[in-house]
Design a protein around this nucleic acid. Structure first.
Lengths: 205, 205
DNA sequence: GGCGAAACTGACACGAATGTCATGTTGATT
DNA sequence: AATCAACATGACATTCGTGTCAGTTTCGCC
């Protein structure tokens, strides 16, 4: 079999198994039996289990990263809110189309190797930073209310992560509707707009 | 040494180690060497490593659960927003005072045992459901805008989780301020209130 | 059809971690 | 100071997964 094809084949099977059983509960024996190859063959294509896993992990992170575009301001650029929506849509569609990969990242990638933990942490940190920058920009443009953008960024990131986790476990509902809900939540919160005036004074009697 | 004291001693040491290295990277040898006991002694007090870990996990979940009070409406009850604030404060303080336990739950508890995964998942599901009920109640009371409360609940839960994760890694800033920021984010979102009228029409031209 | 390279195989040696158990220690009681 | 029960010990057998490697098969090419 052709070199690349075989590699891909193993990766494909491994992805499924990792997504279902997680990193630790999956062993090389599981992978090779699914992929119908001998033990030795596995080690021809991958250094070891971790090496293979890393490749899958990199794949998700890369795919996600390319789907998150920086918010751009300027003539000819779409409304910031529309750019946000587009980002969310791209990410959500990917999650749905690659549930196994998403599961790996969300539930099984943390806590088995310090190096990879770091890798994932950095990834999220970057996204949080990106969100924060967008919020800061939004403030200077008068679109966003003054707030601790750092905390807000984490709230947004967390909210999206949690929804995605939910999405990857459950039957996929209407994506566009979901995106819209998330967007509104992030922009307006849950309070009735009519009450915001009073709520803004919360804690400052 | 007294029976309960020894147990507590082992638990205490194990907690530290689990928090730092995670479940998989920690082995019984690590625990007994820290706790200064012999291998056999360990098995006098715990069935095995998983048993001990479960005990710690139950501890966090229990501690967190008792700190989240159901929102109550009625004469003599504090404002809903104040009840929310109180919940957040209690949870956040606990997280700060028990960083090791929190770390275990947040980063190291998932993906090594299907049974425990389920346990944690159920825990979060319950909280999400609780949040959703509160939101539904808020809607009937005219405090909360109409929205998909399920999605909103996940956004809120996720936001809090992410902030907590951040909190448990970083130097603890002013808790009250943090709680206030989260609260406002959840209630009002990030958009400038003056713009909400336009934003509410997003996606419905 | 024979030759060499590349791909593949699976038995095996090895190391890591677990749980047990026969034995040793402690300390309270008579 | 003898006895006994509770507590503690650590050497050891066992299990499990890994990575290797000597040998086999496949395939393109002369």
């Amino acid at each position: 079999m052709e070199k690349q094809a075989r590699r891909a084949q193993v990766l494909r099977h491994a992805k499924r198994i990792f997504a279902r059983k997680g990193y630790h509960r999956t062993n090389v024996a599981d992978i090779i039996s699914r992929a119908r190859i001998a033990r030795g063959t596995f080690y021809l294509y991958f250094e070891n289990k971790k090496d293979l896993f890393e490749e899958l992990l990199e794949q998700v992170l890369r795919e996600l990263a390319v789907r998150i575009h920086r918010i751009r301001i300027g003539p000819g650029e779409p409304e910031p809110a529309d750019q946000l929506r587009a980002n969310l849509r791209r990410v959500m569609s990917f999650v749905l189309s690659e549930r196994d990969l998403t599961n790996i990242l969300l539930s099984h990638a943390l806590g088995f190797d310090p190096e990879l933990d770091e890798r994932i942490q950095t990834f999220y940190d970057r996204i949080a930073a990106q969100i924060q920058r967008s919020l800061d920009l939004g403030i200077t443009m008068g679109l966003v209310r003054r707030c601790d953008t750092r905390t807000a960024a984490y709230c947004i990131l967390g909210g999206v992560k949690e929804t995605i986790a939910q999405l990857s476990r459950q039957a996929p509902p209407d994506i566009d509707g979901l995106v819209e809900e998330i967007l509104r939540f992030g922009l307006s919160g849950v309070a009735r707009p009519e009450l915001l005036e009073t709520l803004r004074n919360i804690g400052e009697p």
